[in-house]
Nucleic acid binder design. Structure first.
Lengths: 253, 253
DNA sequence: CGTGTTGTTGAGTTCCTTCAAATCTTGTGG
DNA sequence: CCACAAGATTTGAAGGAACTCAACAACACG
């Protein structure tokens, strides 16, 4: 882990958009013919990253824009003294590096939580695309708004909930996103998230995260292990964490 | 306060866009001729809200989209048991109700922190605008990305900082935004934000918020009173709260 | 077989919360 | 203009949630 090396080269393989793995996802509404062909023209290639590799470096001025074809990434922010805050987890269909499309330097880093395959778009053509294809641009805004909604949920969790509530909140959030994107089934998400990562996401210490997880496991609410996150009863977990709304369908690039 | 009544009627007054008060703002880059005329055509009128009035109701399905001409709003999220999380403060030039543009029901409420005047756009024509004026649509995406960046900052604050750091963070954030939008000068923002509101934003108890404020006042870092927020030395305050980047300029609607 | 990462457990401390009550402000109506 | 009510700030004291420090066990990896 923490290999540091920024490999993730653009590979020769190039899945044609009509075979895009995202087409099979429940939670996504597929683009129409014309859209697809334009996306295909916009696409620069694909890139693969191994678990733990950096996809984007905080502070850098990114030149690419990505869509996740498969895998899970995480976005985080580092502070000078070494503390870090994980901002969000990113699933297939999510857009990576929107900020970078607006020429500012990246305020966060992105790394692969598990092996991932990304679809690459050249940043400099983003503006061009937005101008020539308002419909796609609109969808991008939609995605941005949805990401914003996620962050709001996280904010509510950090601001208003205690450790155990935060943990169940995050478990439900992840399992839910996993189910939408075909990564999870039956309330079980097979994904390796270390307790350290959870702690950095929820603003808790590692030790307290550990103890709270154990409490939730004993209570039968959330079973978060090294290799998977399981929420046996989503409804009661939602009730425990005071969660309400379920998310809606979305378009994708 | 908490007048409850949702007045805020669309008034007869209608500032022509070429006299828009936002044109005077340092932090905003003005639209060109064609853009302005299209915005003007899109505009449905203006609405005024008194301090404490609800602009948008959580759970409702909003029919309007707003831009703030003057005043400050706050966006919040209520939980069933009465807890509330303030998500963000909104300043002149900000877009209110973007989420509602995507037909989902509002996950947050919006209320006027001080008397405010808003520019009203009909929600149902938003899509139409996006399709016919990609440039403006692009700017909206820009705004959404910028709001997202704010939320990320808040998230870092709640997740990684202690009470006093959070308070100075918020003070700096507010004063900075105030200066960009012409509401603040010289590190002083004349704005009534109650300690209860601060507590609800930062995820702290009212009592602890109070004591931490006093500590910061004694330390000379932040002087947060009933009527204003003052940060004598922005740089040392930033250093204390471990803040780094300054925000960039932005377009507006 | 050591080395590094992750998970687990114990003990003591700090930060923050809760409860409760007093003071100060603000607004309102007589 | 004063009295009163409602809201906001302030202060004290006690309890609890979460943190730090420290050590050890389990596991993967080369």
């Amino acid at each position: 882990m923490a290999t540091g090396g920024n490999s993730g080269r653009i590979g020769a393989e190039r899945t044609p958009c009509r075979l895009c793995p995202l087409l099979g996802c429940e939670g996504l509404s597929p683009p129409d013919e014309t859209q697809r062909s334009w996306i295909e023209a916009f696409k620069a290639g694909e890139a693969s990253y191994a678990r733990g590799e950096q996809v984007m470096q905080q502070g850098a001025r990114a030149t690419r824009l990505y869509t996740i074809l498969e895998g899970v990434l995480l976005r985080f922010r580092l502070l000078e003294d070494g503390r870090r805050q994980i901002l969000n987890f990113m699933f297939p269909g999510d857009l990576v590096g929107l900020q970078s499309a607006f020429d500012a330097e990246l305020a966060h880093g992105v790394e692969a939580l598990i092996d991932a395959r990304l679809c690459v778009f050249p940043r400099e053509r983003f503006f061009e695309l937005a101008m020539s294809h308002p419909r796609l641009s609109f969808d991008v805004t939609w995605l941005a708004a949805r990401e914003e909604a996620s962050l709001e949920e996280h904010l509510v969790a950090l601001g208003q909930r205690n450790a155990r509530e935060r943990l169940t909140y995050l478990a439900v959030y992840l399992v839910q996103r996993g189910m939408e994107t075909g990564v999870a089934r039956n309330g079980v998400l097979r994904l390796t998230v270390t307790q350290g990562q959870v702690a950095d996401m929820l603003g808790l210490s590692l030790v307290h995260t550990n103890r709270s997880m154990q409490a939730l496991r004993r209570a039968g609410l959330v079973d978060w292990t090294m290799t998977s996150i399981a929420v046996p009863d989503l409804e009661s977990a939602r009730a425990f964490a005071q969660m309400e709304s379920e998310p809606s369908k979305r378009p994708y690039i």
